[in-house]
Design a protein around this nucleic acid. Structure first.
Lengths: 329, 329
DNA sequence: AAAATAAATGTAACCCGTTACAGAATATAA
DNA sequence: TTATATTCTGTAACGGGTTACATTTATTTT
């Protein structure tokens, strides 16, 4: 910058004014400075700016694990928005580990990160208090005074279950995720509200299996062996649904004829399976986009309204439930 | 920091010495400073350090699109190493777009990023010249004087094709990716070297379809209709292989009985399909790890050897090729 | 005990921008 | 013409660390 100033025969202050378009600068001087910048290929040092301003134009996204097929799309959405606003995007895999989250929070704040988008079921209010910049809770709602973006998990759970009924399923099991996650608990509640008072419901129709395909497969296999009457499975995410389909396949149970399977998420793996997976699709990309936009707004306005936005889910009907519909009840 | 210095009744220089463990500090003074730090919950401002040192402890990974199932695992590996060294990880989706790559390069260098790991087929030497920090080329090799990590794509292409022959396939087609990518071209070369001189090979057994599932499906469908004699397909990545399987399914062609399919990558989607997908697996996580380790080393040592590491691929035999083996030839 | 060496600490410049403030030059108003 | 407002530009402090160098104090050596 000194070089540019010297070259254009002005002070650094003037160069700064030209770069930022702030303050009055004589058009001729401006031109001279711009030429100097051009000539010297000058690029301002963003670190110095950050130091002065206390803002880095960086935001971070916390996800449990990018290898879970739900998150790449989310991350992509966030990055796209981030880019649009000329911010830089930092991806953090937390594995749902408090220690890791804590380390990230410290490190990133020392780097003057301007905001966080957090997918977490473990994070505590105490930890959040350590964060002095805007935060958006995404996908999972952890109780606190935060803006958050989720889907209507309860409604999704209901609809998925009712949908299975509507295509004729008489005995519907549910594979649910870890208890710590608010989203899976809501889906479970939706399921329960539909099946609780039926004459067929058994608590052994309920399996808890951590969003993991292999585990879902093993547990489903056992359940199907003990309960061959089951003719519908609602899994709380797509990965578990795929596990369930594999279990059925291995047992020679046909999908969708003998057993209908519906997942949750609408992640793209559901298209890779045969039959393709029917699922309660979340508008993943839109949610990521909205979270990022909301964060940008909070960063810009310095205001942090406790907006809670709930996106609708929609039924993505594919092959794993393709039967002739039967009259309700 | 001034506060800490005041509180401990020393100068900022001494505080800095304590923090960095450099220079001689009286044990008592050190203790006093440490207590002050503790008491005031002092955390050094990383931006100021970065400004002084010219190093940010951040590295960036360029990938075409994190939504492609090959990349999450790679990104995860890089992030894990990044973390281990207390660096911060920046993920950049380039869409193979030169403009985007260029923008990222500028922005990140202004932020004093310490190194790049780049997956790209488009990037030019001219662009690389703009980068003044270590770079590792990953997955795809773009000609330049760079350290790079790839797999033996040629060998993989050969082996995949020969494997199909070994299980009895008589007419083997190949779905290859975009011409711009060095890796897919090598796989093609491997395939060609096996089939070129056979008496059955036809140029129409070769399909070019951009790593895209839907396109692969459509093109395969057409090919299988025109060439029902095809009994083996080698796809240059898993996503296309899945497209091919779907095409077969839709045409009522059984896999693996009538048609064997092998993919390339060993990404986790291959486990979600039915039948599960046989594939030439790359050690994705290891490659990411190695690339990151190599980058860390170059950052630390300031030396940039033009190491070229080629990882082996290995056959991951799953169901899409499960037949009784037949004697070679 | 004087001299030499080592340890402990502080002062101030530096990293590279931004901006408050002041001063000079020019334009407009009285 | 003088007073006042405007435009333009520079000086210097600041953000929050690091470190070369100087200085003081303690320890060893002779």
């Amino acid at each position: 910058m000194r070089d540019v100033a010297k070259f254009a025969d002005v002070s650094v202050a003037t160069v700064s004014r030209v770069i930022n378009g702030k303050g009055d600068v004589n058009p001729e001087t401006r031109k001279r400075v711009e030429q100097a910048i051009e000539y010297l290929h000058y690029k301002p040092n963003d670190v110095a700016r950050t130091l002065f301003r206390g803002k880095s134009k960086m935001i971070a996204l916390f996800v449990p694990d990018i290898m879970n097929p739900f998150f790449p799309e989310l991350a992509r959405a966030v990055e796209d928005v981030t880019n649009k606003y000329n911010y830089t995007f930092i991806l953090c895999n937390t594995d749902g580990d408090l220690e890791k989250e804590l380390t990230y929070i410290d490190t990133l704040q020392q780097k003057a990160v301007d905001g966080f988008i957090i997918v977490s079921s473990t994070i505590t209010d105490e930890m959040l208090k350590k964060i002095s910049v805007p935060i958006i809770a995404l996908d999972r709602f952890f109780h606190s005074e935060l803006a958050s973006i989720t889907v209507d998990n309860y409604q999704g759970g209901r609809e998925a279950t009712e949908y299975l009924q509507s295509i004729g399923c008489q005995r519907i099991a549910h594979l649910c995720g870890p208890e710590s996650a608010s989203n899976t608990m809501e889906r479970l509640r939706g399921y329960m509200d539909v099946v609780r008072d039926t004459d067929w419901f058994l608590s052994s129709y309920l399996l808890s299996c951590n969003y993991n395909m292999e585990q879902a497969k093993v547990m489903t296999m056992e359940m199907l062996r003990n309960h061959p009457e089951i003719d519908g499975i609602f899994a709380a995410n797509d990965v578990m649904a795929i596990g369930a389909m594999k279990a059925a396949e291995q047992l020679g149970i046909r999908i969708p004829e003998d057993l209908a399977v519906i997942g949750f998420d609408g992640s793209s793996v559901g298209e890779a399976t045969s039959p393709t997976l029917t699922t309660m699709a979340q508008p993943i990309y839109d949610m990521g986009t909205r979270a990022a936009e909301m964060l940008m707004e909070q960063i810009q306005t310095q205001v942090a309204p406790k907006t809670i936005e709930t996106f609708p889910v929609h039924l993505l009907e594919r092959e794993s439930t393709k039967r002739k519909k039967v009259a309700h009840g």
